[in-house]
Design a binder for these strands. Sequence first.
DNA 1: TCTTGACTTGGAGCGCGCTTCAAGGAGTAG
DNA 2: CTACTCCTTGAAGCGCGCTCCAAGTCAAGA
Lengths: 142, 142
Amino acid sequence: MREAGYTIRAMAERCGMTAHTLRYYERVGLIQPVGRARNGHRRYSDADEAWLHFLHCMRATNMPIREMQRYAVLRERGDDTSIERRKILEDHQAAIAGQIAALQKAHSLLTHKIANYRKIEDRIRIPNSVTPESDRALVSAN
Amino acid sequence: MREAGYTIRAMAERCGMTAHTLRYYERVGLIQPVGRARNGHRRYSDADEAWLHFLHCMRATNMPIREMQRYAVLRERGDDTSIERRKILEDHQAAIAGQIAALQKAHSLLTHKIANYRKIEDRIRIPNSVTPESDRALVSAN
DNA sequence: TCTTGACTTGGAGCGCGCTTCAAGGAGTAG
DNA sequence: CTACTCCTTGAAGCGCGCTCCAAGTCAAGA
């Protein structure tokens, strides 16, 4: 069975999802019913791939499935839904900015904590060393 | 019932969690059994608060509960678990870096898509305007 | 005394996003 | 023909992280 388009397996690999997930996305309306080979097997187009990549990117940044569904429905309705779709994307972009901020905060917190652990380890490796005044507060601060 | 320490409600607010979540965290061992007032109500200390803030920060950056449990257990075992704990934090920091990268990629993708939607909207507002050559490819590219 | 409200517990329930199962069909190699 | 692989479907199941429920205790206020 040749015929044009990617098999579900191939597309799953290309998009970094599983075949299960692709069927699931189709079932819940995130992607329109996919073309079929004569034997009934799905055949994905390049357009499908682009859309799936987009979906993957949105999911990977924690857009809920429900929101993606809203977007997908608008997309199917055409260009006159542009403003609503843009709103969804802008909201999600703002959500992303928030996530980035939280992650950066945590990242720098971890930098400090990791440095502190190194100090604790030093103290253990060199048992009788004198802990500098300035570090007294840090060490063992969980 | 006065007595020292924060009520569960107060602590929940301070940490941006619900009282339910605080009990849940205690139940699954993320936090040691909390002190009690004479009537059996929980009373949280400042040390509890610091730890809960840390937990909150880790959860907010998608550290799984299981991993936080591993960390909590090591922390209770004391300073000789420093290396293991540091490893956990370093791994999580790396995970955070990965998340930030994915989010930034999505953020810039959205910037482009949003700009494109604006173009579509312009075309609709000024029906007979000429779409510049350079934009032909972009417009309607979902 | 009665009510109100904040807390306690163990256990059940829930929403999300998949993930797996069971049963079956179609095409290919030996 | 047999065996194997890859696909199909509808439906059930699952892991996570809460979230809520039911029933009870306790203390303060009217």
